[in-house]
């Protein structure tokens, strides 16, 4: 039992963060806050990947004398790509928010919905 807790608490807290982001995305109507939630979700996925690549007593994967244990470089590379992609998606999402504000005069989801309905 102690083994499971000590070996998995990292994943559990990461899942908690993921769900906090997910909750913000689906329960709040403000578009900027939704994007902040999406960002939290993405960051916690990064944390999950890096956790899987971690080796205890290991070191950063840069070859140097005196070290034999390195953490897995492959998740690091994938997440480097993912971080940049996440900024691209955030930039696009925020540009959409700016356009929605121009077109509807609000960034609250329910007000946008009302305006659509009254057309």
């Amino acid at each position: 039992m102690i083994d499971i807790i000590f070996g998995h608490y990292n994943y559990w807290i990461v899942i908690f963060l993921m769900m906090a982001g997910f909750y913000t995305v689906i329960s709040r109507g403000n578009l900027i806050k939704k994007i902040a939630g999406l960002n939290i979700f993405q960051t916690s996925v990064f944390l999950l990947y890096i956790s899987i690549g971690y080796v205890s007593e290991g070191t950063t994967p840069i070859i140097a004398e005196g070290f034999t244990k390195y953490s897995n470089p492959l998740p690091h590379v994938l997440i480097l790509t993912a971080i940049v992609v996440s900024v691209s998606t955030i930039a696009l999402g925020l540009a959409l928010v700016v356009r929605i504000k121009e077109a509807y005069g609000t960034i609250e989801e329910d007000e946008i919905h009302e305006q659509d309905m009254s057309l």
Binding site: D3, I4, F6, G7, H8, Y9, N10, Y11, W12, I15, M18, M19, S51, I52, G53, Y54, V55, S56, E57, G58, K69, N72, P75
Partner: peptide, 19 residues
């Protein structure tokens, strides 16, 4: 998701399949 983590090897396990 938490249920799924029980199948993941422990954090920092050098023998895990990912390594």
């Amino acid at each position: 998701l938490v249920y799924g983590t029980y199948d993941i090897p422990s954090f920092g396990d050098p023998m895990s399949p990912a390594q």
